[in-house]
């Protein structure tokens, strides 16, 4: 187990137009993109969607390789999807390699499915690349607010997500400290087979859990002492602000989705 350079999440801070948009705008925009990518049915539609995503990447001032890197883990699935479509769709044969036949329909379908996958992943990753997890959590909370009427505890969910995120660095530090302490006593976390390794983790995990519960208890007492009563009437240090730039962005996105989704 290595801790060096451990980064959790893929958010890259920045000050571009895209970074400054309200998280709610970005969540809605991403939803529209998903709807669009599942409703277009032709290369013009995918081409236009690709141009739109490229424009967003350019506006976000992020290096392109960050976005492209996100595609790497799905390379196998991508190749599999394209080749399955390529060889297994029936239709007009174009090319015969040994026992495999490439059909015209298969080629078109394969390229289209591949394009949809790549665009979906690139497009949705723009949301998590340009928005911090805390902002996203805030955005989700306000977007879930209408669902409170049917009993969805929007505030509590967001609060728990925030606490979880807040505790990752704390727990990481604690894990490192415990590991060093146990290694000084002769614990070995590196060698042995699977069973051995799992067993070796016990002196790490027991103090980690016990400490985590203690910290959780402290935080719960502190929250109660400050009169925490859930979401009702609670104010925020950083309010989300839906500005003119957000209104403009939403208008453009909706107009684009309707036009492209309808005509292509």
């Amino acid at each position: 187990m290595r801790f060096k350079n451990l980064t959790i999440g893929q958010h890259i801070p920045g000050d571009s137009v895209i970074h400054r948009l309200d998280p709610r705008t970005k969540i809605l925009g991403t939803t529209m993109l998903i709807v669009l990518l599942f409703s277009v049915n032709g290369f013009i539609g995918y081409g236009l969607a690709a141009l739109a995503i490229a424009a967003v990447i350019q506006a976000s001032e992020l290096p392109w390789r960050y976005v492209l890197r996100g595609l790497r883990p799905l390379m196998v699935i991508l190749i599999l999807t394209v080749s399955l479509n390529l060889f297994m769709t029936e239709g007009e044969p174009l090319l015969r390699i040994w026992f495999l036949t490439v059909t015209k329909e298969g080629l078109l379908r394969g390229l289209m499915m591949g394009a949809r996958l790549v665009l979906l992943i690139a497009g949705t990753s723009m949301l998590t690349l340009t928005t911090s997890p805390i902002q996203l959590t805030d955005g989700i909370e306000t977007l879930l607010n209408p669902a409170r009427k049917i009993g969805v505890p929007a505030h509590e969910l967001a609060m728990m997500m925030t606490i979880a995120l807040r505790f990752i660095p704390t727990l990481l530090e604690e894990t490192e400290k415990i590991m060093k302490a146990q290694m000084a006593r002769g614990a070995d976390f590196q060698s042995g087979n699977l069973m051995q390794r799992a067993k070796n983790l016990i002196p790490l995990l027991v103090p980690l859990f016990v400490n985590a519960f203690r910290r959780a208890d402290d935080l719960a007492i502190a929250m109660e002492a400050r009169g925490y009563r859930g979401g009702e009437g609670r104010t925020k240090f950083r309010e989300l602000r839906f500005g003119r730039i957000d209104a403009a962005a939403i208008t453009i996105v909706i107009a684009f989705t309707v036009v492209v989704g309808f005509f292509f």
């Binding site: 959790i8 509590e156 609060m159 728990m160 997500m161 925030t162 606490i163 979880a164 995120l165 807040r166 505790f167 990752i168 704390t170 727990l171 990481l172 894990t175 980690l208 859990f209 985590a212 519960f213 910290r215 959780a216 208890d217 935080l219 719960a220 929250m223």
Partner: peptide, 14 residues
């Protein structure tokens, strides 16, 4: 329970 759940979820993410 709420805080404990949150902290354990943090541990799971880690």
């Amino acid at each position: 329970i709420m805080v404990e759940t949150a902290v354990l979820v943090g541990a799971a993410l880690l």
